[in-house]
């Protein structure tokens, strides 16, 4: 390390250049599509394309928000992803508590069965589920999507919650039990409040997972009545054939809530997502 300082400076410059390129590439589509959504149609079709927006209009957003299909799709997505999250958190937190905290014979077998779903290709069950839903008239209802979404989100939910529950101090619960609380009470009154931050992170990730789901939605939703945004937006390519601004605006509207959630809770999300890799 003879001329360490000048080497360090060049190293740092290169490093930050690399970081800048990386961040730019990762963010580019969002920024570019955002730009497409706010410029006039004339600028959109300009050749060569402009790099920075030269014009500004909210026409594309006006178009998209006046669209009844889009409004309905936003509502459908919220209901489907919200219900999935609630059910997953309920089923997941009680199961994760048992796995993390209680000793019983088939604990690892249960965990294996549940987590095996993470390796399951969802497409493998759409054919039989389609027949099953036809038999009980569930096709084209919210439940036709909520139920499979729940099953495929559960491994993530349980995995995260088991990790969170294991980190909680065990003494408190035991103290509660000494004071005469049952296992269920100890869970409700002690574990749930303590685990709230972890449960909240899990809820966000489960919600994103369910909000982004496409295969089940595309299979089990037939009409605009139940269609979530992930199904509605690709269809805009045919509805708004040449209105690329409107298509861009729709993509931005659907993504912005997720981007905000992610930016706000990034630290927690990263530690939740990498829990498995680190501990292995």
């Amino acid at each position: 390390m003879k001329d360490g300082t000048s080497r360090n400076i060049w190293g740092s410059i290169l490093f930050y250049l690399f970081i800048a390129v990386f961040v730019l590439v990762a963010m580019f589509p969002l920024l570019w599509v955002f730009k497409m959504s706010i410029v006039t149609r004339a600028e959109l079709y300009a050749s060569p394309p402009t790099i920075l927006p030269q014009t500004f209009t909210t026409d594309s957003y006006a178009t998209i928000f006046a669209d009844a299909t889009f409004q309905r799709a936003l509502l459908n997505s919220t209901v489907i992803a919200g219900t999935t999250t609630v059910i997953c958190l309920f089923l997941g937190s009680i199961a994760a508590y048992a796995i993390a905290r209680l000793r019983f014979r088939f604990s690892s077998l249960f965990l294996t069965l549940i987590l095996a779903i993470a390796f399951f290709p969802p497409v493998a069950i759409i054919a039989p589920l389609f027949l099953m839903w036809s038999a009980v008239n569930l096709n084209d209802t919210y439940w036709a999507m909520i139920i499979p979404n729940t099953v495929f989100s559960l491994p993530l939910t349980i995995w995260l919650l088991v990790a969170f529950f294991k980190e909680l101090p065990k003494d408190l619960e035991e103290a509660a039990k000494v004071d005469g609380a049952t296992t269920i009470q100890a869970f409700r009154k002690v574990i749930v409040p303590l685990a709230a931050p972890g449960v909240f992170t899990t809820a966000i990730l489960t919600f994103i997972f369910a909000w982004n789901e496409f295969l089940f939605a595309n299979t089990f939703s037939f009409t605009e009545r139940t269609m979530p945004v992930t199904v509605a937006i690709p269809n805009f390519a045919t509805v708004y054939t040449v209105n690329y601004g409107a298509q861009a605006a729709a993509a931005v509207v659907v993504t912005i809530p997720l981007v905000i959630l992610v930016l706000f809770f990034q630290r927690r999300i990263v530690s939740g997502l990498t829990a498995g890799a680190v501990k292995g």
């Binding site: 990762a26 963010m27 589509p29 969002l30 994103i208 909000w211 982004n212 496409f214 945004v229 992930t230 199904v231 937006i233 690709p234 993509a251 659907v254 993504t255 997720l258 981007v259 959630l261 992610v262 930016l263 990034q266 999300i269 990263v270």
Partner: peptide, 11 residues
């Protein structure tokens, strides 16, 4: 890192 990951694939 997280923004592209959180995007719905269809979007």
């Amino acid at each position: 890192i997280l923004v592209p990951w959180a995007f719905p694939t269809v979007i």
